[in-house]
Design a protein around this nucleic acid. Structure first.
Lengths: 144, 144
DNA sequence: GCACTAATACTCGGATAAATGCTGTCCGAGTTATCATGG
DNA sequence: CCATGATAACTCGGACAGCATTTATCCGAGTATTAGTGC
């Protein structure tokens, strides 16, 4: 239920990259950290994971940095979450295991997973493009 | 996103108690463990938390045990979750903290919390009575 | 048959320990742009 | 003006340490039922 700091940092960094989507030059880690207050040495490894997941692309060497590998509209918060935490995360491993022999535990496993699906659906509905747009135009409209 | 084993065990135990809701005598820990394969010494502390949360009532002494403190229809999976994990669990503490100064992080904090709310809503819609009923009558009807 | 005592079975709650994962740092290596220097 | 080499800036990736949380286990204490024992 609680997000790991890694995942949060990943989203912050990715959203920062989304803001610079139109720019030519890649964004350096130092810039992200300066703007958002994220520990730099830690962010390195996070961006590395995002790169391996195909969400982010990197440019090496001086004047290098990171940019989004796909259009911001095609990257959702759920993408970022599974990129960091891995897809193999069972929501309720104990219930699933016990559910092999106990009908009761099996029912619970289904319920937990239904809740997790609801959460994932919401995250899948939020793209980086949405957030970037709301970030620019003070999103007073969302607070009616 | 991943449930703690404690929470899963709590739900299993509570659902087992719900099945014996109509019985006079309380259910002993050993019976729950025998039926569901939960470590006994661990379940003691879990039931203690559920008791402090007012979800479960205990009868001390020989022939003692546990029973639900409320009607199974008035106990949801969300109740069990907050009883075990505590209500003070921020979903995205980092984003909330950074959101004080960064609009970007603030937007993310809202998004994470919206997803968490969706999940909590599903859990709030599932009562122990529901699950107990489905547990008795082989719930083939749910698999259309 | 009755009162009293001992044994038993259960809950209560804290202390403790091992395992695991999270968070963050450090360091060396690889890669590229930039700049200085010499021809 | 051009070529070459040094330097700086950045990414890559593993190793590692400190810390917190999780997952139990253990033990003593409290409480009520039950069985036994003596009168």
């Amino acid at each position: 239920m609680r997000l790991s700091a890694r995942t949060e940092y990943a989203a912050i960094a990715a959203l920062e990259l989304a803001r610079h989507w139109q720019a030519e030059e890649p964004v350096r880690i130092r810039e992200i950290c300066a703007a958002q207050g994220v520990p730099a040495r830690f962010l390195v490894h996070i961006l590395l994971r995002l790169k391996h997941a195909g969400i982010v692309a990197s440019v090496r060497g001086a004047a290098g940095g990171y940019r989004l590998a796909r259009h911001p509209e095609e990257i959702t918060l759920e993408d970022l979450r599974v990129a960091i935490e891995g897809p193999g995360t069972d929501v309720a491993p104990v219930s699933v295991a016990l559910g092999q022999r106990s009908r009761l535990a099996g029912l619970l496993a289904e319920s937990w997973e239904a809740a997790a699906r609801a959460e994932a659906d919401v995250l899948r509905g939020t793209t980086l493009a949405d957030l970037a747009a709301r970030c620019r135009s003070g999103d007073a409209m969302y607070y009616i």
